[in-house]
């Protein structure tokens, strides 16, 4: 198994009191699976993805990705680990506004430093070509449509060739046609061996995904 969650709990403490976002989640996901995490707002979808991606830490339980238990890692180690193992895609794209599309894609390679500097640009261009926005490479994100920006975000997530892609509501801000294209991209990635987990409200995704995980009030119901 590539991803293994055991007895995962996450409780947030707020001024209004404690709030359990995830309760006793046990989940395993295999390599190359395309999994959709669905549920209502506040059901714990984003929290689940955050814990798998090492963005947040569980209150209890364990998270293992590719055999690495990440719940005990430091912030810095998590950043390094993420850089090589996880690609993240967000609802609002989160591209850096002062970098061009090409530079946004090159940035994870720059941080990780695995590729020689001379190879980063060709790889970024190839990834942009793969997601269909290579002609926008030298534009700033602001000049692109929402769908194009999300494609760039996917290319950026693939920059260091991670085994896992986590996408939190990747189509939530896109029209249906564009959303379909983006889901198609994810399907292609999963088919090529990358594990893809998306948190989504989309109803018509059964045709592209391998498995659905339903969350209700922080508990996996099926």
């Amino acid at each position: 198994m590539l991803i293994e969650l055991q007895s995962l709990n996450k409780t947030y403490k707020t001024e209004a009191g404690s709030f359990s976002a995830l309760r006793g989640v046990d989940l395993t996901i295999g390599a190359g699976e395309f999994v959709a995490v669905v549920g209502k707002s506040g059901s714990g979808k984003s929290t689940l993805l955050n814990l798998v991606g090492g963005i947040d830490r569980p209150t209890s339980g364990s998270v293992s990705v590719g055999g690495t238990a990440i719940q005990g890692m430091s912030e810095n180690d998590l950043a390094i680990w993420r850089g090589g193992n996880v690609g993240l895609v967000f609802q609002f794209f989160q591209l850096l506004p002062t970098l061009t599309v090409l530079e946004n894609v090159m940035l994870p390679m720059d941080f990780r430093g695995t590729l020689p500097p001379a190879d980063r640009r060709p790889r970024a261009l190839s990834l942009l070509d793969r997601v269909g926005v290579v002609e926008q490479a030298n534009k700033l994100p602001q000049a692109l449509s929402g769908g194009q920006q999300q494609r760039v975000a996917i290319a950026r997530a693939l920059a260091n060739d991670p085994p896992v892609i986590l996408a939190d509501e990747p189509t939530g801000n896109l029209d249906s046609a564009t959303a379909k294209d983006v889901l198609g991209l994810f399907r292609g990635l999963a088919s090529a061996g990358t594990t893809v987990i998306i948190a989504t409200h989309e109803r018509d995704i059964a045709s592209v995904i391998d498995r659905t995980v339903h969350l209700v009030d922080g508990v996996v119901v099926r």
Binding site: A79, I80, R82, G83, G84, L88, L96, L107, F111, A157
Partner: peptide, 16 residues
């Protein structure tokens, strides 16, 4: 802050 968060999310360390 958001940009810092995003850079960390894609692998940027604190020192970087």
């Amino acid at each position: 802050v958001r940009q810092i968060g995003m850079m960390k999310a894609i692998g940027g360390t604190r020192s970087q």
